[in-house]
Design a protein around this nucleic acid. Structure first.
Lengths: 341, 341
DNA sequence: AGGTAAATTGAAATCGGTTTGAGAAAATAT
DNA sequence: ATATTTTCTCAAACCGATTTCAATTTACCT
């Protein structure tokens, strides 16, 4: 059923029908009601691609998916979906080829110029992130999930990684820990940097020297958690506490500690960051995991919301949202208890 | 840069340019080469939405994301992405509102009629899945990831869930286990049914009676694994082995066993299904987890491939791919050792 | 050279809508 | 009753490509 045909059936012109359906004020309420009702009855729906071509609006938000296929991603998207379900807006997932710099920039450029999306969400930004500069320059609406130090105004939503880790670390210090290891995310992303800063600032403000031997970076996997935790714990001056970047990392740390006969919560304390997953909860781990918590899903929902606002005309420069992070103490943290090696 | 403008710069008609770029044979190689080269130099790219409108082809595959935001999903999509990266095809993620039947059918109908995607991938089909009937009826190309018993021809890719679980269960029986619990996925999906069949057939062919008290269904979460495992293990005649639907479920079972002081691999054997995640590997668990393994990512890649073939004209009725599942034995399985309660 | 076949090229129609600018009808003001 | 404003409707232009059909050029034969 095409517009022309449909209009003819109603005895109206295509113009009037189009206006009636798009809510323009020039059409009387009586007519509009009739048009809407008949559209439902006869099953008329405007051809999306014709509308897209004509209006330039696509009704889609682009999200670039890193090669790694992180488990966070699904949660974030589920969150976005929650918000977009009522809207007439799709989520377009753009796969990223290889992590080479040029290819990445190329991808974003092409995406921005391709008219396939109305806006883009940029993930895991780096301190000096050229993607942001590029999108800004191209005039493509975008929202950064995370932050960047780059000298280009950009709307962002981020969680207070620095504060979260500072509090986590400070709490461990308050429990008497001085050798606190940090298993952070991959180097390069701003969030990893912020967490690093939070960690260092907590140590320094308590006069504890930072030991580079106790800092590691890597993907958020069980494997990474295990490997680093194990190697740290085998050092002569082993750490008595860990700050970890993710639940998976924490699983690895638990495993490493167990494998060495160490008790989590007494011999070794652990605080990890929990993005809140439906399938793996910090409270259920044994012992239950103390965590800095912030829902990835909620972030997705809010990001979708902000993007919609952006597209509705809200100024990008005024969108800066920093979410506080809860610190939830459970059984995996306890007072220090020094052990002889 | 528009086609008209670009063509003028080249001193050619839009027709010729369009043909050159789309690889039509009517244009000489010399001209084509020049056009392609200049297109790159001047940065001309056809407007996607004009092409979509004109050709009716969208260049997008739709995937409906369930509300649950399962962790499998990201892996599957990453796999799809791997295949589609070279193609000019997007992945459109369609959020599913609430799992009410009507809403779901409505969603698929609208999606199919909306011209936003060229094909749809249907997940977690049910034995009698009306979505399949609908899509078939509407003539929308689709591929089922999983299978359905519905009396409508449909192209599918599935893993041999029945065989996998049968082998897993048989292996446990061979080790002497007779009280084998099954923590399956949510009831309703075909894969859960197939696993159930595999489980029962293994027991029956060894003359072991099926005990409904040892069968549970639920989401693939640590929580579900723990709760059911715990309650099973607290029964007077506790099971000595578990067959589990996912790695997360296995984590829960491990936890439950530990909490009761039982040793995995000796007191209790566990085999779970492993979809192969980069962030959590069966081999790394302690003790390492025996698993039926099949890569979700590979399935995504292949599904994308099959959809492309479908769109290229391959007959849907001839696409039926059943993947065998590896059974990988590790430390979590061992000979039965009956304990007194 | 002249005629035919083959290889190129282009003008114009088309995809299915939105929106501008203008006209007709109805309502209000003078 | 006429002029003016307001409300509603429409014809036609346009978005930016693809593709049909016809025309032109080049290549090949005799």
């Amino acid at each position: 059923m095409k517009l022309k045909e449909f209009a003819k059936q109603l005895g109206l012109s295509p113009t009037t029908v189009s206006r009636a359906l798009s809510g323009y004020p020039e059409v009387s309420e009586v007519t509009r009601a009739r048009v809407v009702q008949e559209a439902v009855r006869l099953g008329y729906r405007p051809n999306v691609n014709a509308v897209r071509l004509k209006t330039g609006r696509v009704g889609a938000i682009g999200v670039v998916m890193g090669r790694a296929g992180e488990f966070h991603f699904a949660e974030f998207m589920a969150g976005m979906a929650e918000r977009l379900i009522t809207e007439d807006t799709d989520i377009l997932v753009i796969p990223m080829a290889d992590p080479e710099y040029d290819a990445e920039m190329q991808l974003y450029r092409r995406l921005a110029e391709s008219q396939r999306v109305d806006a883009i969400i940029v993930h895991s930004p780096r301190p000096n992130d050229q993607r942001i500069a590029l999108l800004h320059e191209l005039g493509m609406p975008f929202l950064v999930h995370g932050r960047s130090d780059i000298d280009v105004p950009h709307p962002w939503l981020d969680i207070d990684n620095e504060g979260a880790v500072r509090r986590a670390t400070s709490h461990l210090i308050a429990l008497g820990h001085t050798r606190i290891a940090m298993i952070n995310g991959r180097q390069g992303a701003t969030y990893a940097l912020h967490r690093d800063i939070g960690y260092r600032s907590a140590l320094q403000s308590h006069g504890i020297e930072v030991d580079p031997q106790l800092i590691a970076n890597g993907n958020f996997t069980d494997e990474i958690g295990f490997r680093f935790a194990r190697s740290f714990l085998e050092q002569p001056k082993r750490p008595t506490a860990f700050v970890a970047g993710s639940m998976m990392t924490a699983l690895g740390i638990y495993r490493a500690a167990r494998s060495l006969g160490l008790q989590i919560g007494s011999d070794v304390s652990v605080i990890a960051h929990d993005d809140v997953f439906p399938y793996l909860t910090a409270d259920n781990m044994v012992p239950s995991l103390s965590a800095t918590r912030s829902s990835m899903r909620a972030a997705g929902t809010r990001c979708a919301d902000l993007v919609l606002q952006l597209l509705a005309g809200r100024s990008p420069t005024e969108i800066h949202e920093l979410w506080p992070v809860e610190l939830i103490l459970r059984e995996s943290t306890g007072p220090v208890r020094e052990l002889q090696t």
